[in-house]
């Protein structure tokens, strides 16, 4: 019995590998399966994160919520209207960095609403909707640390969450400017919460992440007044919702919804609800850059 499962598993892996390695035939003419699937099942599966407040997280009531989630719910409404469905059930599926791509490409989730930076490397594998949030890498430090910019990190410990774009950007900056940080490399920890704990305990002197994340963590810290976010941006991180590649109709519907939200001012209202000051008191007013970006993506009809 064991072998038959193992053999089938192996066989499936091989089959899958060969089938998927083959070039997509006739992919040009047809649109992807997401819209069709939504119409048939009358269900939209939204992928979310457990702990990326205030963009995508699980509240104390155990429900998915946040800025990205609210935007995705608007896209769900638009899908219901576009497909003329009498009802559309929205299901929330919690994702982890390990499962999000397998589940998106397997069709278990139709759209991922979290806090992911749109990058070229990732675009090889998935599609991003238009940028709905803009942030960038900065440093979180203790107010009395004397650190004002990345150049001040000589001999200091810098911590970052594993695999984020921030750690990469910080490394580039450190190499470029020849800054000698303590230990020779950035300490990479499991997630932002762990990085913050390293800071609280004095193991690290600076923590780099998207500034919105840093503001959020500082606002939740035991003593928010102890912390400040410093430095000029050393990377820009545009966030967008993620959908499977080759689903032009679905992508168009998503982008159109975002455009309509910008034009009607609803998007700004959603922003205000989550960020000014927001449930976690993050108090992160919309930047000029994001305001301009939103105007730019609100394409004419």
């Amino acid at each position: 019995m064991g072998w038959s499962i193992a053999a089938r598993l192996g066989g499936t892996l091989l089959l899958a590998a060969t089938a998927l390695a083959a070039p997509p035939s006739g992919a040009l003419a047809q649109d992807g399966p997401v819209m069709k699937r939504i119409a048939e099942t009358k269900t939209l599966n939204i992928g979310h994160r457990d702990a990326s407040p205030p963009l995508s997280y699980v509240g104390q009531d155990g429900k998915a919520q946040g800025y990205s989630i609210d935007i995705c719910l608007k896209i769900a409404e638009a899908a219901k209207e576009e497909l003329k469905l009498d009802k559309l059930e929205v299901k929330f599926i919690p994702l982890t960095p390990q499962t999000r791509i397998p589940l998106l490409t397997a069709g278990t989730v139709d759209i991922i609403c979290e806090s992911s930076t749109h990058t070229l490397g990732r675009s090889r594998q998935v599609s991003f909707l238009n940028t709905t949030f803009l942030t960038g890498s900065k440093l979180l430090v203790r107010k009395n640390s004397g650190i004002k910019r990345i150049e001040d990190l000589t001999g200091k410990v810098l911590v970052a969450a594993l695999g984020g774009t921030n750690e990469r950007a910080a490394q580039v900056e450190i190499d470029k400017k020849g800054i000698k940080i303590k230990g020779g490399e950035i300490v990479k920890v499991k997630d932002n919460a762990q990085a913050m704990l390293n800071m609280e305990q004095g193991r690290a002197d600076a923590f780099t992440s998207d500034d919105v994340v840093l503001f959020g963590l500082a606002s939740l810290a035991k003593n928010p007044a102890e912390w400040e976010v410093v430095g000029p941006y050393f990377s820009y991180d545009p966030y967008g919702m993620i959908i499977p590649r080759n689903n032009d109709d679905w992508r168009l519907l998503g982008n159109k919804t975002i455009t309509m939200l910008v034009r009607s001012g609803e998007l700004h209202a959603i922003y205000k609800k989550w960020f000014e000051p927001g449930p976690s008191n993050i108090n992160y007013p919309m930047s000029e850059r994001l305001r301009e970006n939103l105007e730019l993506i609100a394409l004419p009809d």
Binding site: A51, Y57, A193, L220
Partner: peptide, 15 residues
């Protein structure tokens, strides 16, 4: 453990 981890991260009370 995962629920505890979620709360620890969200409320910044890991210890």
């Amino acid at each position: 453990l995962t629920t505890a981890d979620i709360v620890a991260g969200r409320d910044s009370r890991p210890v």
